[in-house]
Write a protein that binds this DNA or RNA. Structure first.
Lengths: 233, 233
DNA sequence: TGAATAGTGTCTTTGAGACAATATGCC
DNA sequence: GGCATATTGTCTCAAAGACACTATTCA
């Protein structure tokens, strides 16, 4: 630490949180909001906001997630939210010095934008189309995508992108949407079912959109790790 | 983003970088500095300091690393430095609101503390003894240790903890020091040598401290990934 | 000579990749 | 019936785990 510690000696940094909220229905999609003011007015941006003086960075991320997604307190506790990385380039915001702590959230469904709330101008953008975002949010999104792709390899977090219940075919579709490649059914099933705590079978079955045999319905298990990992092809 | 963006509307956050500098000679050790002032005067702490207004967070980490380790510009470019996580609890510093971006550095040797510089009161502490650090630095260290243990599984970064050249026995000792367990020699050799770009053999050999056959000397290769990973037992 | 280390070989087991075969549903 | 999906089985191959054996150096 420096010898001087007078708060006034240090010009103010603003600290913000930005959140990459991901979900899968058909494609992998990210929640974006339309900016109404300069700079980058009219452009899409990641949801985020300032950390308040009496609020931890983690609390700020949860608050912004609740405000921007419109998710209620019933489903929020089951949402996965983790810190991603901090972006601290000097000129990343043209107005002042802003350091942003980026977060990654994985939600099990796509909540509908709710009129009259902050989420009113939020929308889901397929990640393939999410370019030209405001500030350095393109960079943040790329870091988030690499993180989630890697995490599906060694954790059971794919279950947090769908749900609350799902078939193994739907779970495989999540992997294929995130990784952008096809997987072999039989090997995927073998790996998932052999991993303790990944999924838990129910006594229900379900038939998909285009027919086919009814598939067993599963819910997420209580396991978190996937050892050995399931590697991307 | 909030509707108001007046810098004066936001109480000042201080932004710091703290660095977990790790190295291995016999044990895994972390560089700590003794605090001379309140709070936590006399306690050991991680090296760190304020991010300057015209300096990116990454630049601040490199500057602090250079100042605190005394490493010269000849070896610094070869040092591994990466962002670890950001610690933003409200009361982590009793004096004012400080958000710290923690970093992880892996240096190939233990540079000697240099009198007359910031590094004068720096010292290497075996990680097993590094408890009771100032602020939330115990937590930061634990996150760093888990990160480096995981990274040895799927990257070739172990070579950045020794060097510039080494035998396979010494490389194995790095893994054993970081993971805290013994590995089987034959299997370790097979994995390292089968991984493209992990190590590169030289035409030299070297004999260890307690005799034994002379071992081939290697240098780090140009590969970064280790696929499939080498799993901890 | 004995202890310690380096290097090589091999047997076994685990798990992933690829693919086939059968069953069950919707249209 | 035709198509799509689910479920199970099997063969093969790559890689890790465990362990044995030999060679070389220092004390």
């Amino acid at each position: 630490m420096s010898a001087s510690y007078d708060p006034r000696a240090f010009p103010p940094f603003a600290v913000t949180v930005d959140i990459v909220v991901l979900s899968v229905v058909d494609d992998l999609a990210v929640l974006t909001v339309r900016r109404g003011e300069q700079p980058f007015a009219g452009r899409q941006a990641l949801p985020g906001g300032f950390v308040r003086p009496q609020e931890s960075v983690a609390d700020a991320a949860w608050r912004e997630l609740a405000e921007e997604t419109g998710l209620g307190p019933d489903v929020l506790p089951g949402v996965h939210l983790e810190q991603l990385a901090t972006f601290g380039e000097v000129d990343r915001d043209p107005r002042m010095r802003v350091v942003s702590v980026a977060h990654l959230a994985m939600v099990p469904q796509r909540p509908l934008p709710t009129a009259g709330t902050d989420a009113a101008d939020a929308r889901w953008t397929p990640v393939a189309d999410a370019t030209g975002l405001a500030f350095d949010h393109d960079d943040i999104l790329q870091v988030a995508l690499e993180r989630v792709r890697a995490k599906l390899e060694y954790t059971t977090l794919a279950t947090s992108l769908i749900g609350p219940d799902f078939t193994l075919g739907e779970l495989q579709a999540v992997y294929e949407a995130v990784w952008g490649c096809r997987l072999q059914r039989a090997n995927f099933r073998r790996k998932v079912l052999a991993t303790p705590g990944f999924v838990q079978a129910t006594d229900r079955s379900r038939t998909g959109r285009q027919g086919g045999a009814p598939a067993t319905v599963y819910v997420a298990g209580d396991g978190a790790a996937l050892t050995p990992p399931m590697m991307r092809p």
